[in-house]
């Protein structure tokens, strides 16, 4: 799969991208990011630091004002949207659920970019959709109406839809924000195994620093639209970085089983001691 990557081995890379929403004053960039096959990249940072904007740029939903984004070596703007969707899937933070689709019908939409004109899904597509639902623990919801599901269930169905897309690159904007701890662990396990065993490049915006530390191979820390630090969790999650970026006082420990860094909050009354 040599042709899948560009020179530095990234399957999706953004070089020197900038972006600003008109009349908002918010500026992103210049940012460099690269996603590698087999790795999970966690994107962390305070609210309004540009994580979602970065995701939208990487997915091709927004076009950068300058700089370029390359998918499998080609400029993403020059690839037909449908062909982008064959190798890149993006799960937005929230999807409207106005129409009474069943969960399985939603997941089957993930096969849309792979369908030829005037063709409907085959049994193989259905099997892929069911596998994706099994992976996100949503198979028992297949027959339920998507708009009747809870926030967390919807989120898992949307992730199943992205998996049914069979992408090489998977981008997720806060995929765990509505989930309980069982399903956070389960979803992040799925993402990690898709990367480590399936060879996908995964990038996810995550709020919980400890989950990010535990499940991601690399972390990208953002502040005010710029990258503050990028690298292994042990390097990025330092007390100094977190103080500087989040303005929070913490101390860093270690998960006794896995050895990953763990962020402990420091209450004000203990700080003075």
């Amino acid at each position: 799969m040599a042709n899948e990557c560009d020179v530095n081995g990234a399957i999706l890379s953004a070089a020197n991208i900038r972006f600003g929403y008109p009349n908002s004053g918010f500026e992103l960039g210049p940012v460099d990011v690269s996603l590698h096959s087999g790795q999970v990249l966690g994107i962390i940072g305070p609210n309004g630091s540009g994580k979602t904007t970065l995701m939208r740029l990487l997915s091709g939903f927004l076009n950068p004002a300058s700089g370029s984004i390359r998918l499998r070596g080609a400029d993403i703007k020059r690839i037909r949207p449908r062909d982008v969707a064959k190798s890149l899937a993006f799960v937005p933070h929230q999807a409207p659920s106005t129409f009474p689709y069943r969960a399985l019908e939603i997941v089957l939409m993930g096969r849309f970019p792979h369908l030829a004109m005037f063709r409907s899904e085959t049994h193989q597509d259905e099997a892929l959709a069911r596998d994706a639902m099994a992976a996100t623990d949503t198979l028992q919801l297949a027959d339920r109406y998507f708009n009747e599901l809870s926030g967390g269930e919807r989120q898992r169905v949307m992730i199943a839809m992205a998996l049914a897309q069979q992408p090489r690159v998977l981008l997720l904007d806060e995929p765990t924000s509505h989930l309980d701890i069982k399903h956070i662990v389960a979803i992040l396990d799925v993402l990690a195994s898709l990367a480590n065993e399936g060879g996908l490049a995964v990038a996810a915006v995550l709020h919980d620093l400890n989950f990010a530390a535990e499940f991601c191979d690399r972390l990208l820390l953002m502040k005010n639209g710029a990258v503050e630090a990028v690298g292994a969790p042990t390097d990025v999650l330092s007390a100094a970085n977190i103080k500087r970026v989040f303005g929070a006082d913490v101390t860093i420990g270690v998960n006794p089983v896995t050895g990953s860094p763990f962020v402990f909050p420091m209450p004000g009354r203990r700080r003075e001691e």
Binding site: V84, L88, A89, P92, A95, P96, F99, Y101, M109, P113
Partner: peptide, 20 residues
């Protein structure tokens, strides 16, 4: 009509599915 299905999920999700 196939694109319309994707568009019910919102602009971002539809665009991620390859709809212009």
């Amino acid at each position: 009509s196939p694109s319309m299905n994707a568009m019910t999920l919102g602009d971002e999700a539809a665009s991620a599915l390859g709809v212009n």
